[in-house]
């Protein structure tokens, strides 16, 4: 599956910053990802698009180490490590981030407490060496800045994690977490779903502001809408657990016009011509 590395503009023998190699994953004994390869470099934004059931969420959850997804083959290399052997929190500490499609409610824990605990965890604060913990002042300043971009007010911080949040608030909260944790490899899983047009704009502005040479982004989405706001450098089409096509941003426009009908109708007979780009 060298085609993806090629599409990412890299030669296969040059190691990318984040590299998925022939990843195969099963859920409850059924193989969902059937050998997926993809290379993402810092500074790049890749979009993975696909119809329902193509394995998009399996990909995002596997990359972050969700226990329900069983890796049956392949590697994911990041900073010289195969992260598939690391527990979820170690992946996060290494610089990975996943914005969930369905952020989880944690009753009784305030956003502020959650964010601070996460920041401190990433800084390696072990409860003893106070110099590693973020100071109240620094924490406030950091949040104030990022929250204004996302148009979130202070009351947000005293609410319990995702409890009673609207769809838009949940997604903004995810991006806020990304902004304060400053990952080097971010996976945005259906971040546009359930968003009204204002929220999609605020969220996109925030992500675009974070784009730069220190961040690689993988946007996972069913629809092309979000890609109008966050312009991808590369687009990959995932169907039935395999990448069937990769290309530049124009592929998203093509998909918007044609949809996934070509592959979804007869996924077993995807023409070779399409796969080869």
């Amino acid at each position: 599956m060298a085609l993806n590395s090629e599409s990412a503009g890299k030669l296969t023998h040059v190691m990318a910053d984040f590299e998925i190699k022939d990843l195969r994953v099963s859920v409850e004994g059924r193989e969902i990802l059937k050998g997926v390869s993809l290379a993402v470099n810092k500074g790049e934004v890749h979009a993975v698009m696909g119809p329902n059931g193509s394995g998009k969420s399996t990909l995002s959850h596997t990359l972050m180490g969700h226990p329900n997804y069983k890796v049956v083959g392949g590697q994911v290399l990041f900073k010289g490590k195969d992260i598939l052997t690391l527990p979820t929190e170690e992946r996060a500490k290494l610089g990975m981030f996943l914005a969930l499609q369905y952020p989880v409610v944690v009753p009784g824990i305030t956003m502020s407490n959650f964010l601070r605990t996460a920041i401190n965890a990433k800084r390696g604060f072990d409860g003893k060496d106070k110099s590693k913990a973020i100071s109240v002042k620094e924490f406030r300043a950091l949040l104030k800045n990022e929250m204004s971009v996302l148009r979130m007010d202070d009351s947000f911080l005293s609410r319990y994690v995702n409890e009673g949040f609207s769809g838009g608030e949940k997604k903004r909260a995810e991006i806020l977490q990304m902004a304060v944790l400053k990952p080097e490899m971010a996976i945005l899983d259906e971040t546009d779903s359930g968003l009204d047009i204002d929220s999609i704009k605020f969220v996109s502005d925030a992500v675009n502001k974070m784009r730069g040479p220190e961040l690689g982004v993988l946007i996972i989405t069913h629809y092309t809408r979000v890609l109008k706001f966050i312009k991808p450098d590369y687009v990959h089409v995932l169907v039935n657990g395999e990448f069937v096509r990769s290309g530049g941003p124009e592929l998203a426009d093509w998909l918007e016009a044609k949809g996934y009908s070509e592959w979804v109708k007869e996924p077993a007979k995807a023409p070779a011509a399409l796969e080869a780009k």
């Binding site: 959850h61 972050m64 226990p67 329900n68 929190e89 996060a92 500490k93 969930l100 989880v104 965890a121």
Partner: peptide, 17 residues
């Protein structure tokens, strides 16, 4: 729930924590 644990762990927080 596994989902709560995964969510918190995905932010760098250990399972015990």
């Amino acid at each position: 729930s596994d989902e709560q644990l995964f969510y918190l762990q995905s932010r760098g927080i250990t399972r015990a924590e």
